[in-house]
């Protein structure tokens, strides 16, 4: 699951998965802009068949957070 999340995020923001750390966030990753963020949300919702709330989408600013939110939904 962790790998899948990393891959989805990497695809959405178009960087290599190995360049993403738990510390990566929109603030320190220029590719992670608002458009890429939406891309990621759409992919997460489809792949895990979940629906994220507005708050959750705003909350998901790094990989551990993303994992926490998605796990909560499964």
């Amino acid at each position: 699951m962790e790998n899948k999340l990393r891959q989805i995020l990497a695809d959405a923001i178009d960087v290599a998965p190995e360049n993403l750390t738990d510390k990566s966030s929109p603030d320190n990753t220029p590719e992670w802009d608002s458009f890429a963020h939406l891309n990621m949300v759409a992919a997460l919702e489809q792949e895990f068949r979940i629906s994220l709330t507005l708050d959750e989408v705003i909350e998901m600013q790094n990989l551990p957070k993303i994992k926490e939110v998605v796990s909560r939904k499964l």
Binding site: S34, L38, V41, A42, L52, T53, L54, V57, I58
Partner: peptide, 13 residues
């Protein structure tokens, strides 16, 4: 709706 508020996406994904 959330994408409409977040991103002004009138036509949803």
């Amino acid at each position: 709706e959330k994408m409409r508020y977040l991103a002004k996406m009138t036509v949803p994904e």
